[in-house]
């Protein structure tokens, strides 16, 4: 039937014209290519703009701009700029946010997908998704007035008294935490709350997408609920879970307002999680509108460039990891 039609159309030019006119495939394809092209062009334009506009700072400081240092300078009056405290602040708060949010988020997802009684499932899912809809400035305000003094400060003091005494790793937890609670720990915890819904929602979909046959097979072999989840479902959904983590990390890296409000905005915090710090997005938000000199502006744009590159690298890494995990998964499941 199809062959007949095809041969007919090739012979009859009228049919060919009709096909060209009525068939939307070609224009539709072109339109889609155009849309994807816009994304690529946009990325290049943003990256290029950041690169060009930061030239003053790049020429003045070179790589020393990013080098780790114990006594960082960020001195708009004397035009001395180093990005290390911001780089460190962003990375360490995002990393700890992921560490805290991962077990909570995946735990919520497992509960919602596997264990939750049906009557509780919908309202609970709805509530978790609602958490993601709260504007970050609201998190910041709530953080300043409630969460930091009431929750973060006591946790910080506890950590300083316990983990802070452990050699080596204790350097991350040297106290005392500022009495207001404003610290990198506060930023990590606020970020945790902000990315838990993202991780939970994506992971839940991953678990729901796993075919029931997998669960039935595990249970048929005598696996308990726990063993099914831990040894079958999580390995099966690994690449999806990794995607959830990357999504969460992406949000944590770029979060500006809430972090600015709770991190303390101090560049002299050492490496401790319990002291006030700074993040890349915060310094840009804080100082860009009122920059003191041209070099100050350039340095802030260079920080934007660094943030842009980090996000890009992270996404590439994530793609790579997901690709590898996806390739390995079937083999391991067999073994």
């Amino acid at each position: 039937m199809l062959k007949q039609l095809k041969s007919l159309s090739e012979k009859d030019w009228r049919v060919r014209i009709q096909r060209a006119l009525h068939h939307g495939d070609r224009p539709w394809q072109g339109l889609l290519i155009l849309f994807s092209g816009v994304v690529i062009v946009l990325m290049l334009v943003i990256g290029g703009m950041l690169w060009v506009k930061s030239s003053g700072s790049r020429n003045a400081f070179g790589l020393s701009f990013l080098a780790p240092t114990a006594n960082p300078n960020w001195d708009p009056v004397n035009n001395l700029f180093q990005a290390w405290p911001f780089l460190y602040g962003t990375l360490v708060t995002s990393l700890f946010a992921i560490l805290f949010a991962l077990p909570i988020g995946i735990g919520i997802a497992i509960f919602l997908a596997e264990l939750c009684p049906p009557w509780l499932r919908t309202p609970l899912t709805w509530l978790v998704e609602l958490l993601a809809a709260i504007p970050s400035v609201v998190y910041g305000l709530w953080g300043i007035f409630v969460f930091l003094p009431k929750v973060v400060a006591p946790i910080g003091n506890f950590l300083a008294d316990t983990l802070g005494r452990v050699p080596l790793a204790g350097a991350l937890f040297t106290g005392p935490i500022p009495a207001s609670g404003a610290s990198r720990l506060a930023a990590s915890l606020i970020l945790t709350i902000m990315i838990v819904p993202t991780i939970a929602a994506v992971s839940r979909d991953v678990f729901l997408a796993i075919p029931p046959s997998q669960r039935e097979a595990a249970k048929a072999l005598g696996a308990t609920e726990w063993e099914t989840i831990w040894q079958v479902l999580i390995p099966y959904g690994r690449s999806g879970l990794l995607g959830a983590i990357i999504l969460g990390l992406g949000r944590a890296l770029g979060e500006t307002m809430a972090v600015t409000m709770v991190i303390g905005n101090s560049i002299q915090g050492g490496i401790s999680l319990l002291s006030a710090g700074y993040s890349m997005a915060s310094i840009i938000a804080n100082e860009f509108a009122e920059s003191v000199s041209q070099l100050h502006t350039d340095a802030l744009i260079e920080i934007g460039l660094v943030l842009f590159v980090i996000t890009l690298l992270l996404n590439i890494l994530a793609r790579f990891l997901i690709w590898r995990v996806a390739r390995q998964a079937p083999q391991e499941a067999r073994s």
Binding site: N73, W74, D75, P76, V77, N78, L80, P178, S180, A182, T260, M261, G264, N265, S266, I267, Q268, G269, S275, A276, Y278, N286, E287, E290, S291, V292, H296
Partner: peptide, 14 residues
């Protein structure tokens, strides 16, 4: 200036 390098380990509020 509008922003300076603050000595010590003070807190910054937005």
């Amino acid at each position: 200036a509008q922003s300076v390098q603050w000595p010590g380990n003070g807190l910054g509020g937005k």
